[in-house]
Design a protein around this nucleic acid. Structure first.
Ligand SMILES: [Mn+2]
Ligand SMILES: [Mn+2]
Ligand SMILES: [Zn+2]
Ligand SMILES: [Zn+2]
Lengths: 146, 146
DNA sequence: TTTACTGTTGATAGTCATTTTCAAAGGATC
DNA sequence: GATCCTTTGAAAATGACTATCAACAGTAAA
């Protein structure tokens, strides 16, 4: 899985004529070793922990490359920070997000996907992507509240 | 329709002990006279066109009041600007957005809403809100492209 | 009305995430 | 190794939004 994504990036880098650098290899390793939905700042801190010299701008730049390479997706929740998650081109899922603790559950639902297409067709649109986020309290947070 | 929303704001203002000001009346008029999904900047420009003295900060502040009053909804697309649209408390709709020209179609679908609830229940979550955006090309833009 | 109180406004400074700039560093090819 | 040109990191710049604060303006009592 991780190796597959490394290969995807390598192929992308080759096709684009990108040079191989320590920084990009490192950032890719850190990114692939985490399965959360990390903000740039969070990723930068993880990177800096082992390699203090790496600059924040490089992390910003490199994450954008991962998206272009087709191994990551950029997502914006309502906290004003851009987050990145693993996602190979062609894969897809939506999010169920706890407003209490931030826990994210990923899901896919073919009924919803199908109805979305029907709606688009009805209006003459051709859908290229979509975004569905459900916000609410997770079981744990529901307990705390009362 | 417009009168109803003005009344909603008036009641909110009364309940909250807000003073009646020229600026808020004006911004409310401009907001209600447009049925688009306007950014704060766009609204500010419309306001400034007839009343150049009004400050940007006042527009920001007033739009937040409209949301609190229950007659507007704040929305964030991917362009990094907050937009506001008409929405009375209790109403709801989702968006179909053209990536070519920005045209927005509003829709509601009870099947999707129902399945969303099922998904939430399955994971033990209690949903408080959601956000669904479909991105693609509208009929007009599909024509242009080819 | 005036007065006195206090909410509101607009200009400006501040914040925060992200982007740009640019000189120095470092891959790649010969 | 020499050359070329991409990449990097620090710092400045940007852009949306928020906080600050003195001047202003509703409001309600006098
Ligand atoms: Mn995810
Ligand atoms: Mn809408
Ligand atoms: Zn939770
Ligand atoms: Zn279009």
């Amino acid at each position: 899985m991780i190796l597959e994504k490394k290969k995807v990036f390598l192929q992308f880098a080759t096709k684009r004529g990108l040079r191989s650098t320590r920084q990009r290899d490192l950032i890719l390793d850190v990114f692939l070793s985490s399965h959360e939905h990390l903000s740039v700042e969070e990723l930068y801190l993880k990177v800096k922990a082992s390699h203090p010299g790496v600059g924040q701008a490089t992390v910003y730049r490199t994450l954008k490359l991962f998206v272009e390479a087709g191994l990551a997706r950029e997502m914006t929740l309502s906290d004003g920070q851009t987050r990145y998650e693993h996602l190979l081109a062609g894969e897809h899922h939506d999010h169920l997000i706890c407003t209490g603790c931030g826990t994210i559950v990923e899901f896919e639902d073919e009924t919803i996907e199908r109805v979305q297409d029907e709606i688009a067709v009805r209006h003459g649109y051709t859908i290229s992507s979509h975004r569905l986020e459900l916000y609410g309290l997770c079981p744990a947070c529901k307990g705390h509240q009362r």
